[in-house]
Write a protein that binds this DNA or RNA. Structure first.
Lengths: 196, 196
DNA sequence: CCCATTTCTTAACCTGGGTTATTGTAAATG
DNA sequence: CATTTACAATAACCCAGGTTAAGAAATGGG
């Protein structure tokens, strides 16, 4: 059963008894999000965090000029939500949708907090996951401040090797922070435009 | 006593008994870092996380060209470390130093993990602090991807109102991601360079 | 109080990446 | 299988922000 993917992720950091696993599963909702469907829309409240069993989600914001900026891709084994909206229960400025048909387990903030009291090990697990997310987010900030677009493209290829050939390259551009035109120039033109 | 500042921060999220406060304080080390002195140097391991009681620290990375990029300022009431090195105990790529004489409490990762077992509420506190840091980091990423330098300067002024007049403006430039020359142009020149 | 160092400003010129537009092509959709 | 719709490539031109340089102002240590 697909719940095993989630349990597997938990067991990397904590040990859960059979009863605890059962209890946890009572608080989860399984859902299929079809390609191009939304899990979260700007203006809504992120009531749940999602664990991706298969497929891939993305979170992004849309700026004043209508450009999308991708914060995170979530392939198999990743958690995704808008953390701001999830912890404050205020309206989100992000959108989350599916790049392909995707299976997820949803855990509401409400249930998460209940579980933290019933199974303190779960609070540990999420503490660790959040620490790791913070490391990733800070690293990406540094990369954006110190690297060129071409170097960031290289890092993307290492970080999400499975995605490169599976998603449109305009999404890669929206992640590394350039226009699709410029990414195309990078990959093909490479460097030179000047004479010989 | 200055420990009260830390306890005050804890009490915003959790309730600690007198004994628990005592136990916690046994694991903390008080330290004064004088202006321009280092708390962490590239290549070292971040054994501790620091809580700033007074003064201000900063964390930054240095890129291939020798330019500094500031990840975080930590005035009174903020926690700071290199989360990557702190959780993995691998060598850091960041540097942390003091912008002015600064008082901190240090908590080692080792002691932090011991405390998480002895006082689960502390794990909750750090789970919450880390969630909030993640929100801040993600927001800053969005800002860097979607806003102009001028808009980012405005946000800096709102985020760290106390710092604007207390730190050299080259540091503000290193935070918002522009050169000191360009920030100067922004503040004074404003817009025009072309003819009337 | 003075000299040295660091910081700030200004200005001329440069470039990485953006904008706009066109054309070709591959998927969805009917 | 025709037709919309979305994606990628290319190219000419543009601009926010970087680079270099050099003088003015602030800071700081002896």
């Amino acid at each position: 059963m697909s719940l095993q993917k989630l349990i597997g992720s938990l067991q990397k950091h904590i040990a859960l008894s059979a009863q605890e696993q059962e209890l946890l599963s009572d608080f989860l909702v399984f859902k299929i999000i079809k390609k191009r469907q939304f899990l979260l829309h700007e203006g809504q409240i992120a009531r749940e965090v999602a664990f991706v069993v298969s497929g891939c989600l993305r979170s992004y914001s849309i700026d004043q000029n209508g450009f999308e900026h991708i914060l995170q891709f979530a392939p198999t084994g990743w958690w995704i939500t808008d953390m701001y909206s999830f912890i404050s229960q205020q309206q989100t400025h992000l959108t989350i949708d599916a790049l392909m048909d995707t299976e997820v387990y949803l855990l509401s903030r409400e249930n998460q907090l209940i579980l933290f009291d019933k199974i303190p090990k779960l609070e540990r697990y999420f503490r660790i996951v959040t620490e790791n997310s913070l490391v990733g987010s800070r690293q990406r900030l540094i990369d954006n401040l110190s690297l060129t677009a071409s170097q960031r493209y290289g890092i993307f290829c290492n970080t999400y090797p499975t995605l490169i050939h599976d998603i449109p390259q305009k999404l890669i551009a929206a992640y590394i922070g350039v226009t699709p035109e410029f990414l195309s120039k990078l990959k093909n033109g490479g460097a030179k435009t000047k004479k010989s």
